[in-house]
Amino acid sequence: MTRWRPRLADGTAPVLVVLVVLLVALAFAGPAYSEPAGYLALLKRAAPLVILAIGQYFVVVSGGFDLSVGSLVTAEVVIAARLISGDDGNTAWVIALLLGFGVLVGLVNGLITTKLLVPSFIVTLGMLLVLDGAVFLWTGGAPRGALSPSFRVFGRGSVDLPLLGAVPWSVLILLAVLVAAVLFMRSGTGRTLLAVGDNENAVRLAGGRVERLRLLAFVLSGVLAALAAILLAGFAGVSAQVGQGLEFRAITAVVLGGVLLGGGRGSVVAAAAGALSLEALFSLLNLVGVSGALESAVQGVIIIAAVAYAAHGAGLRQRFRPRKAAPSLP
């Protein structure tokens, strides 16, 4: 008889445990979380960050950074408000344009990284400065225009499903993205992307197209940032600060999910769970009454702890495990 057990990639389990603990704690802390609606609201709130974290995961796992996603989100939201200017007729083509802009920014990031051999940290830092400056230059500091109701539906609206009742659009979009990401990471391309982060030369010698995969990672990150911006704009409205700090938050989420900075290790589900844990933690802190100002301090302690655990956890687990025959060194 064959036993089926869920296949979890290495390092996924700890963050899932953390997530479950946080969700249970939420149920005790707040009456809103005693029924599914509360968790659905949490998921809706977390959707943009989770999508950003999935995009960031692709770049991080292939060995890079994308620091430009925060300012890209801001740019997308500001552009959307300006171009739609409250008219429902503009919604469709503006959404297409926003996704296209995300692809374009990702392409530029990726091409400069792969063709000009500039470290992605610097490229995306430069892109951050360029986008921030350009957005302010264009708007003069205060975003103009308005979003249309049909645009905002994706961030705040719900859809009635036969069995589940009202499910927010953003949750459905999030699930679609997550499923697609998992399938992608199980495909040959996804596995090779992971391998690029682990050992670029091996992939190149094995005939993998390293540059093209890197480029793909940045494009995915860009387009997912555009998607996150659409949800965030619908949920939170237009402001010039909407994307501030999101790049570090996304990286925090990815790291919290046990994904190794420098690439080659970690699963996309864990990255998404990391983002959800982060959001759940902020909700919990809010309920317990910790001031918002300390949120970032908590975030800081957590990422250090998560990375330290990832660095030492393997060693600790090995120490408590019955000894197997040590592999002989060559």
């Binding site: 100002a293 970032s296 990375v307």
Partner: peptide
């Protein structure tokens, strides 16, 4: 020490310390 003893990536370690300082300042 976070980088050498806890073996955290420098990016994450100093980002974490930055966030802690920020929390302190904002509070």
């Amino acid at each position: 020490l976070v980088i050498t003893v806890l073996k955290a990536n420098a990016f994450i370690a100093t980002l974490g310390v930055a966030l802690i300082l920020r929390g302190w300042l904002e509070h």
